[in-house]
């Protein structure tokens, strides 16, 4: 039990410290690396409470895919130029009111969530839930998602699909003048289109690209 607590505190400490470092480190790439560390320690916490499926999915989706794309974007930015624009004291003061507003909203939301949780008596007591301990939590999650909540599940799938198509449509552009390979044209080409036999007269030569 003690070992469990020690490991729990280690992971939570790493999670909190790296969350603070995400916002305070000057180098944007370092911020993303701390974000990844944060994700990893959170998924370790998930695994510690026995939610191994959620922990692994968190690793695969957030660390394996989302954070890689973050890193991609951040590495492409010109960090030196950005630093000058964002962190100069006279300039950054214009961001303070908006930042304050956003953080105020988030803070009040947290307050409402925690307060509501404390005072709502009907909220389900997690200790007294009737659990079937023979099922692994992957199975029990599947039993809930694909039966009671199947419509919500499919709806969220549709939302993701729409977002994906939207992203493709927004960024897709056809540029002219690019030399691209067309497999169809390559395969359907016949010999008489590509090869031509020419009798070359001596000392006259032949113009090929006529």
């Amino acid at each position: 039990m003690i070992a469990h607590a020690v490991v729990f505190y280690i992971f939570s400490f790493i999670a909190i410290v790296s969350a603070i470092m995400v916002t305070t480190s000057r180098n944007t790439v370092h911020s993303v690396f701390f974000l990844i560390l944060d994700f990893i320690s959170i998924s370790c916490l998930f695994i510690m409470i026995g939610a191994e499926f959620l922990g692994m999915i968190m690793l695969i989706v957030y660390v394996g895919a989302v954070a890689v794309l973050f890193l991609f974007v951040v590495m492409m930015l010109n960090v030196a130029q950005q630093k000058n624009e964002w962190f100069v004291a006279s300039d950054s003061s214009s961001h303070i009111p908006i930042g304050l507003l956003v953080s105020l909203v988030i803070f009040s939301e947290l307050l409402i969530v925690v307060g509501g949780w404390k005072y709502k008596a009907e909220l389900q007591d997690s200790i007294n839930i009737n659990l079937n301990l023979n099922l692994t939590n992957t199975q029990s999650l599947g039993n809930v998602i694909y039966t009671d909540y199947v419509h919500l599940f499919q709806l969220s799938g549709m939302v993701l699909l729409v977002a994906m198509i939207g992203a493709i449509v927004l960024t897709f552009r056809k540029r002219s003048g690019l030399k691209t390979q067309s497999y169809l044209r390559q395969i359907s080409r016949e010999r008489n289109e590509g090869v031509e036999l020419i009798d070359v007269e001596t000392k006259k030569g032949v113009k090929i690209d006529a």
Binding site: I36, F53, M56, I57, I60, G64, A65, N137, T138
Partner: peptide
């Protein structure tokens, strides 16, 4: 572990880092 294959998949997806 119960989610062995997911573990393998997660670790191999971290390999890119």
């Amino acid at each position: 572990i119960n989610v062995g294959i997911l573990y393998l998949f997660a670790v191999s997806s971290l390999g890119v880092y």
